[in-house]
């Protein structure tokens, strides 16, 4: 490598995407046919960028995130390329992938009650993740990290609440705990899969604000998966719209909102209720139910 080449790479690290997904296909092969739920999906996430993946349920958006983490349900296969910071994730063996999971790419899920183990305190569950990746860390140190992480997501009285069980928290607080858990490892990328869907509207806004704040403070990248365009509009700068495993449209948030190219995106936008809309004008997606039947929705 010559000096000038090295300079180039040093000069332009920001141009190289942090995460680059190419031709990602997720499928559930059965004896008769292969059921593809994500179909040749490609997208890039610039370093520190925030990408929204939007689509109805069944559009393959969650499968995309699980494919990145290699946490697909049993029986699912993935093909294509997922490059994260020069590492081809699809080529990693499971032990190597484990060092990425949680530590460098963290995930936040929908419905924090079912996603936290009811038998352990939230502190235990945060500390457990931390200790899995930092070898030789004492219980006490991990406990302190748990408290700090909880403070970072603005859980008041964290030193006491660290010993609470998940059921002792409200929904919004539980999601903060999930975020604290993800944060404790200082990940480079956070994938949030419908993080606000189970929460009521005011709490939604708080959690989204928190995610933005964390992104600004830590420089972590964010992939926000949602069915709700309103959620991504304030939180992300790029959007991709998915439907039935296909990419429908992608672009900067402003562009998608102001001049959507695809009809489907326009329908999604119309379905977002606005404060000045009359109730009668609210649109639903006429096609969704029909397309969720397995024969139509699945690519056979």
């Amino acid at each position: 490598m010559t000096n000038s080449q090295r300079d180039q790479t040093l000069d332009q690290p920001a141009d190289r995407p942090m995460l680059s997904v190419r031709d990602l296909t997720v499928a559930f092969p059965t004896a008769k046919a292969t059921n593809e739920v994500v179909h040749h999906l490609s997208f890039d996430l610039p370093p520190g960028g925030a990408l929204g993946i939007v689509g109805e349920s069944g559009s393959g958006k969650s499968m995309t995130s699980l494919a990145i983490m290699n946490l697909l349900p049993p029986g699912a296969t993935r093909s294509g390329s997922i490059v994260f910071r020069d590492t081809e994730l699809t080529a990693l063996r499971e032990p190597a992938m484990r060092t990425v999971r949680g530590s460098r790419i963290a995930m936040i899920f929908q419905d924090p009650l079912s996603c936290l183990n009811p038998y352990y305190t939230v502190g235990d569950q945060i500390a457990e993740a931390y200790r899995a990746h930092r070898h030789g860390v004492s219980r006490r140190q991990a406990h302190r990290v748990a408290i700090e992480s909880m403070e970072r997501v603005h859980i008041r009285d964290a030193a006491r609440r660290v010993n609470y069980y998940p059921h002792q928290f409200s929904g919004g607080m539980r999601q903060r705990v999930m975020i604290a858990m993800a944060l404790s490892m200082e990940p480079e990328l956070i994938i949030a899969d419908e993080p606000t869907t189970a929460l009521d509207v005011t709490v939604q806004a708080q959690i989204l604000g928190l995610l933005t704040e964390i992104r600004e403070n830590t420089g972590a990248g964010l992939i926000l998966i949602t069915h709700d365009l309103a959620v991504v509009s304030e939180t992300t700068d790029q959007i991709i719209v998915m439907r039935h495993g296909d990419l429908v449209e992608s672009g900067p948030v402003e562009q998608i909102f102001s001049e959507p190219r695809a009809d489907y995106t326009r329908m999604l936008l119309d379905a977002v209720p606005r404060i000045d809309d009359a109730i009668d004008d609210m649109r639903t997606l006429p096609s969704s139910a029909a397309h969720e039947t397995p024969t139509e929705g699945a690519r056979l």
């Binding site: 983490m69 946490l71 484990r98 060092t99 990425v100 999971r101 949680g102 530590s103 963290a106 995930m107 899920f109 419905d111 079912s114 996603c115 936290l116 183990n117 009811p118 457990e128 993740a129 899995a132 990746h133 999930m178 858990m181």
Partner: peptide
């Protein structure tokens, strides 16, 4: 099948744990 097992995996815990 529980969601919290998926969470545990997503934290990078060893399968034995």
């Amino acid at each position: 099948q529980e969601n919290y097992v998926r969470t545990a995996r997503s934290k990078g815990l060893r399968p034995s744990v």
